[in-house]
Design a protein around this nucleic acid. Structure first.
Lengths: 159, 159
DNA sequence: CGCAAAAAGTTTCCACGTAAACTATTTTCT
DNA sequence: AGAAAATAGTTTACGTGGAAACTTTTTGCG
């Protein structure tokens, strides 16, 4: 039955020193995280990026589109499309303020707030699943170091 | 002159509990890593993924295309295109073995080997730059935890 | 053997994200 | 005030990566 044994392992691939590359590891890790995301929110038509944007608008209603984009490192062109889609879905409200008609202020519609509220639980639950292979301490360390590396300030409540 | 002060910070954006999400942090971290990559290898026409594939073929010449793809979590469709491009560039050699004409065995051409050798140094140097914000210890911990999380075995020589 | 199923890649089509050029507003400078 | 520069977002055109369907070759089985 070959349990847990790499005995019958097709062909071994040596990765060499590339396993010391943060870039490489981050990519592999991200694929795993995506996996968790889509497995946990199976069936729901929810993309990681979209949810993040809704989440942040919910916490900071009325800020400018570009402010959100910069903070989340989303490129303007992409942000435009993201927002357009969410407006189409009736989740986000766009307002052009009269004192600066170049800008766009974003907030959630009632539907948008409900949407975030509805997924909040699943989203938080996701954090647990995500970390299943690491101990609680290791998870905390990993998250702390990633924040440091990525330059994200607040050491706020992290589950 | 506003040094190091977030005093004149456009508009503060609260990220809330999403900073505890591995998926979110991994995305932010990856963007930073890409940044390092392209800054360090400025001007060179080199993509992270391409280099990784060449690197691994170099270490394991003659394995099947699909074996490489699975190990690096590259989808078959994408792998086909990647390999085609590298063959066009004269870096990779494809061989259809007679004992199984469905499969493709990959190895580097002389040009391919030279290419990897040429970038090896820059690539290793990159590891240092990448970690500039973390101490050596922290870097090691981060890398170790990412390996664990991503399920990458060998704790091989990591720089 | 000969046909069904599996395996390895490839092709086609589509979604996501970006860079570059563009439009519309506001600010700055003389 | 009025031209030049800067700012905010949008549009277009493209490159990367993926899912699904397809081709070819090999394996399993009656």
């Amino acid at each position: 039955m070959n349990v847990a044994g790499p005995a019958y392992d097709e062909e071994a691939v040596d990765l060499g020193e590339i396993t010391g590359s943060l870039g490489f590891l981050l990519r592999m890790a991200q694929l795993k995280a995506f996996d968790f995301f889509f497995r946990t929110l199976d069936g729901e038509n929810l993309r990681p990026g979209e949810f993040t944007v809704l989440w942040v608008i919910n916490l900071n209603p009325g800020l400018r589109q570009g402010t959100f984009a910069r903070r989340l490192k989303i490129k303007p062109a992409h942000m435009t499309k993201l927002v357009a889609r969410m407006v189409d879905q009736g989740l986000v409200h766009r307002e052009i303020p009269q004192d600066d008609r170049r800008s766009v202020r974003l907030s959630l519609t009632e539907g948008g707030s409900a949407f975030v509220a509805r997924y909040r639980e699943k989203f938080l639950h996701l954090h647990l699943a995500e970390r299943s292979d690491l101990t609680v301490e290791e998870s905390a360390t990993l998250i702390h170091l990633l924040k440091r590396y990525a330059g994200i300030d607040g050491d706020g409540p992290c589950l």
